[in-house]
Simulated assay, not measured.
Amino acid sequence: MQLSFSKKEKQKKPKKSEKVKVTTIGKRKKLVIFLWILLLSSLSFGIYKNFTAIDQHTTHEIEKIETSMIDTHTMESFTKNFVKDYYTWENESEALEERVENLKGYLTEELQTLNADMIREDIPTRSSVNEIDIWSITEETEVTYSVVFSVEQRITEDDEDPTLTYSTYRIVLYQDEQKNLVVIQNPVLWHEPKKSDYAPEQVESNGTINATTEQEVTAFLETFFSSYPTATEQELTYYVKNKALPAIEKDYTFSELINPVFQEQGNQVKVWVTVRYLDEITKAMQLSQYELTLEKDTNWIIVE
Rank of each mutant, 00 (worst) to 15 (best):
H60G: 10
N91M: 04
E214S: 15
S196V: 15
L107C: 04
V271A: 08
K15A: 12
V303R: 11
K250P: 00
A53D: 08
E76Y: 08
V129R: 02
V22E: 09
E233P: 01
S17Y: 02
I62Y: 12
L278F: 03
V183Q: 02
K104I: 09
I132A: 06
T67C: 06
E63H: 07
E157V: 13
I155V: 12
N267F: 06
I33G: 02
L31M: 10
L96T: 01
K64R: 15
P187W: 00
I123T: 09
Q289R: 13
S128K: 09
D251S: 12
T58V: 14
V32F: 06
L39D: 04
Q185E: 12
T274W: 03
I258L: 14
Q234C: 05
S227D: 08
K296I: 11
L35N: 02
H57F: 11
K64P: 05
N130A: 10
E97F: 10
R276M: 13
E66R: 15
M118R: 06
E192C: 13
A211N: 09
L111A: 07
E204L: 13
W89M: 02
A53S: 11
S68E: 03
E121V: 10
L43S: 15
N259Q: 14
N50R: 15
T163E: 11
M69S: 07
K270G: 05
F224N: 01
A199S: 15
I65T: 11
E61D: 12
A231S: 12
N91F: 00
L38Q: 02
L114H: 06
E222C: 10
T232N: 03
F262Y: 12
I137S: 01
L96W: 00
N180R: 11
V83C: 03
L103H: 00
N91A: 03
E121W: 00
Y166P: 01
V151Y: 01
T79P: 09
S226W: 06
D55N: 14
Q175N: 14
Q56V: 09
N206D: 14
T212R: 15
L111G: 09
V188Y: 04
V203E: 05
